[in-house]
Design a protein around this nucleic acid. Structure first.
Lengths: 228, 228
DNA sequence: CGGATACTTGAATGTAATCAATCACAGTGG
DNA sequence: CCACTGTGATTGATTACATTCAAGTATCCG
């Protein structure tokens, strides 16, 4: 008999209208918790007892090696959930990037919903599926793209993801550090920084501040992202 | 209303006893199909109408870029399934590595099972979850490990996965080409080959044939895999 | 204003990629 | 049976991209 499915989704979005309702019914009532920047929310390997939904702020989800190397799996932002799926233990750590508020939910509740509400179970599967596709796409980026392609791909997809959430048209806000981004893209901070500078010099982006980047020429950028 | 959850799991194992029953009830009756080496089974972007289970042979699941670069997501072997999850389209291509036989199942059936059998839905979620964890672990490998670590990590985990399936104790059988492996590890064939030769010279492995590798010293190999 | 932190830039190095042979082997045909 | 061909793997030489090591700059906060 299979254990009740307990998803460990790193960052599940609530994309289309209607899906957020699914998440809400799945999670049930939760406790709102606040975290300071850098504070650990869950630790890789710990027993999987809660899942979380980001209310405000940004959370980095990452795996690490004993010697300190990290791979940032994903960034979770407002309305994203994580810890939904998984058998027994967290497969990644989660830390608040800056001050963040999250709602915490007992995962025991999730198992019951899945067994009792096929509609909700199907919704959870859809979320898991989205997450899988994101992970696979990122595998392609990590394994087969150049530094410039990595950075541009990330900028475009992150811009799409956070569309309208932050500052003006065509401006991306990166709430995390260069180190976080480097650990997401499989690069060093220096290479990320250099690549931004280079795109800046080429007039493709504008570095308004270190965290605010204007996408000046989406066409050429998209062409770089596709490897041409 | 959420679309019926249709998973696009790349390679779902049937790990523990009991889980295989879940897969069988999920898939229902299927049509056995045979493929020649190199033959395409599903194409990334095509409408997701069937899911497959490998009966014999090996299947490579991969995403690619327009210019030909590939990232092999996973290898699917006997009893592994793929195409279980996904909304509307395949997120990856699948090709037979050598001659292979698979059972093909209509995915329409899956949606019904998920809505009607919470037990089976939970099992499917568990499978999706396993797949997610595999994908995340591979992201860490692709983004943050050296060539040597990549090769050794792969050898050890593949050996564990195919334990007892092939030739003698401590011998790994790699049914796919160096190119496939390189595309899985984010390396070139030359680097993979050189790394094998180097491990061979160090006495850690023995290259019995290009496809048969003996793991001579598991201890030191594990230490390399951990980055020490 | 001083100190800390994060980001950027520069120079040198190193790892893996690229370019190019060579080797090994299986299958074919003379 | 043995040369010939084609494919895949290995090895070698060189190059290039990203890393490492090291300064320098900017910004924030006390």
């Amino acid at each position: 008999m299979a254990a009740p499915a307990a998803l460990a989704l790193p960052s599940v979005r609530a994309p289309s209208p209607g899906t957020s309702d699914v998440l809400e019914s799945l999670l049930g009532i939760g406790v709102t918790t606040t975290f300071r920047g850098g504070q650990t929310i869950v630790l890789e390997g710990d027993p999987l007892v809660h899942c979380y939904r980001v209310i405000s702020g940004t959370v980095r989800l990452f795996k690490s090696i004993a010697d300190g190397r990290r791979q940032v799996i994903d960034f979770a932002e407002a309305s994203d959930a994580f810890g939904l799926v998984g058998q027994t233990r967290y497969g990644f750590s989660a830390e608040a990037v800056g001050p963040a508020t999250l709602s915490r939910h007992n995962r025991r509740h999730l198992g019951g919903v899945v067994m009792g509400d096929p509609q909700a179970a199907a919704g959870l599967l859809d979320l898991a599926c989205l997450e899988l596709e994101r992970a696979r796409a990122h595998m392609l980026l990590l394994g087969r793209r150049s530094a410039e392609e990595k950075v541009v791909c990330f900028l475009l997809s992150y811009a799409a993801r956070t569309a309208g959430r932050f500052a003006g048209e065509g401006v991306v806000h990166l709430p995390f550090s260069r180190q976080d981004l480097a650990d997401h893209l499989g690069l060093t901070i220096e290479t990320v920084s250099r690549t931004f500078s280079q795109l800046n010099r080429q007039g493709l982006i504008a570095l308004l501040t270190p965290q605010h980047i204007a996408l000046l020429r989406p066409g050429p950028l998209a062409r770089i992202a596709e490897g041409r």
